[in-house]
Structure formats: structure tokens, C-alpha cells
Nucleic acid binder design. Structure first.
Lengths: 154, 154
DNA sequence: ATCGATTCGTCGGTGCACTGAACAATAGTC
DNA sequence: GACTATTGTTCAGTGCACCGACGAATCGAT
């Protein structure tokens, strides 16, 4: 008695959603490159030469996590890490040729996977779905870091 | 160029959503007990005496993950693990007094947290939101395990 | 120019999550 | 009753994700 119905708990559903996505990614996109790794590659395609901290901010990962992730990508030769001559604290990150090639390849597959993933919803529902997740995630993020911007320095 | 907008990728949003939830849980519910741990406690309140594998099925965790989680809960004295005399392969799991107390306490806090988490959405949107996540997650799960049931043995 | 505060990265520790392999107990078959 | 297959648990390995603490570099004040 007093047990709760977890299917009404957004947190539980969020975890299951992410798991489902993880599995689908593994089969349809890549077994080598994970979704967060792709996010980092993507951030560096958009803005080459970012430092680790900023990349983390762009994709939503903290310093520790991004550090490991970057070192993995570096080990696989997908990006280069150079000390900033202007500011010796940072490392400037830049994709290698292979990093860019990998990003291009995965971009295509990712698009296909997203279609499959969202297939159970109608086109309208898909738009709604993304909008709702975005709003909830953004709002919760706002609770922690009041007045932060993902882009646009204001 | 050729960079993708991650805010249109359900997988990326799912990860951010889960992170946001994780943080909120930590501040509003518990720093000791995590959301997956609560899910396990809840499953055992609903059905005392389950074995590990079945608990994992109920909450959506694989064997390895559930094993570690169970051992953590056991170490903290929240559940007991007894070999099944009928089938020496299984361990039967059952909450301790303290496990039940913890579950009761967290149930209240979890409900409050869910309200805060979903606050940016209207009541209608909240229902819709949960429904959409459920459908996507279930469908993706179905792709991996065709014809499984979360409850009801048919 | 030196002292103090901030900032970037790293390290150690905890926990979730998956895979694949090993192991033990049971169940089914002959 | 022995042999194989299946099932429940564990173990090793990889990766994501957080926190708190630390060292190194920079910036700001005086």
C-alpha cells in the first residue's frame, strides 16, 4: 500500500526516455560515438576554437564530465587541444579532419534516428513534444542558474 | 557550417530534462536517496518479496545496474536480501522498517517536487506532456523487447 | 608590483547505465 | 541419474554526470 504510480512521475519518465534513446542511438547511429560526444562535435563545428568550459555550457555538461569526454575524443583523434597563448588557463578545441568527417556522417544517421524515435507521434505532436520538454528543462535550469543564456551574451 | 540545432533533437532534450530533474531532486527530495533508488523502494512497497531481476524489470533497469543499486540500499539498511528457499538462484527482496519509513517520507517530497518541476506547464499541458513521453518511451522499448509487459502477466 | 579573488582545468569520490562474460542453481530431456 | 539449456546474480570494462577540493594562471585592487 501507499505505493506510487511512477508513470505519472516526469523524472522517472525522463529517465526511461533517455534510456530508450540511448539504446536506439547505439543501434542506429554509432556504437563508438555517444550522443553527448556528438553534441560536443556539433558545438565545435558551430564554433571552432571554444574552450572546454564553454563547450560544456553549450551542450549542458559540467567541467568534470566534459574533461573526460574531451580526452576521449582527443585520444580517438577527433579533436585537437591547444593551450590558449592569450590565456594560459584554457585549452582551445578544434576538430580534426576526421572529427569533421565523423560529424558529417553522424548528422545524417542522427536525423534518421530522430524520425524513428518520434514516429509514434503525429507531426503536430512531435512539435508539441519538443516544445514541452524544452520549456520544462529550461525552467528547471533557470531555477539553478538564474539569468543564464545558452547563447547571446545579452 | 553544417552544425545541427540540438534543441530539435529529442535525445539531447531528454538528457537535459533528466539532468534538470536530477538537480531538482537533489535539492527538494533527498541527497542520500536517488530517484532510481526511490523507484526500487516503491516497487518493493507495491510488491514485497520480488527478486532483483523482476524489480529491474518494473523500474526499467538492467541486471548489473540493479545489482549495485540493491547492494547500496542493503548497506544502508533499507532492505533485506534473502535467498529464496524454493529457488536458490534468486534473492528475495523486502523493505526494512526504515526502508518503508524512508519511502513514506520521500513520497511526500517527491509529489511536491513534481509540482515544481511541471509548474511551467498548464494542467492540460502537464497531462499531455506525460502522455507524450510515455508513448515515445514505450514505443522505443517495444523496438528492443517486442511484446513485453511492464505489469500484468497477460 | 604584490596580494587576493576569480576562473579553467584536473583529480577523487559516488552513482547510474549498458555490454559481455563468468558462475551457480534449477529445469528439461533423454 | 547425467547432460544440456535456461535463469538469476555477479564481475570487469566503458561511459555519462554530479560534487567538492586543488593547482595554476589571470585579473583587479591597491
Amino acid at each position: 500500500m501507499a505505493a506510487v504510480d511512477l508513470t505519472t512521475h516526469p523524472g522517472h519518465l525522463a529517465r526511461r526516455l533517455q534510456q530508450a534513446h540511448y539504446l536506439l542511438w547505439n543501434t542506429m547511429v554509432s556504437e563508438e560515438i555517444t550522443s553527448p560526444q556528438f553534441a560536443v562535435l556539433n558545438a565545435l563545428v558551430a564554433e571552432p576554437g571554444l574552450d572546454q568550459r564553454t563547450v560544456g555550457e553549450r551542450v549542458g555538461l559540467d567541467r568534470s564530465t566534459i574533461a573526460e569526454l574531451i580526452s576521449r575524443l582527443g585520444r580517438r583523434g577527433l579533436l585537437d587541444k591547444v593551450r590558449d597563448p592569450q590565456d594560459g588557463r584554457r585549452f582551445l578545441l578544434r576538430l580534426t579532419e576526421e572529427g569533421e568527417r565523423t560529424h558529417r556522417k553522424l548528422t545524417v544517421r542522427t536525423a534518421r534516428m530522430n524520425q524513428v524515435f518520434l514516429a509514434p507521434l503525429s507531426a503536430e505532436e512531435q512539435t508539441r513534444f519538443l516544445d514541452l520538454i524544452r520549456r520544462v528543462a529550461d525552467a528547471a535550469e533557470e531555477l539553478r542558474n538564474p539569468g543564464e543564456r545558452t547563447a547571446a551574451p545579452a
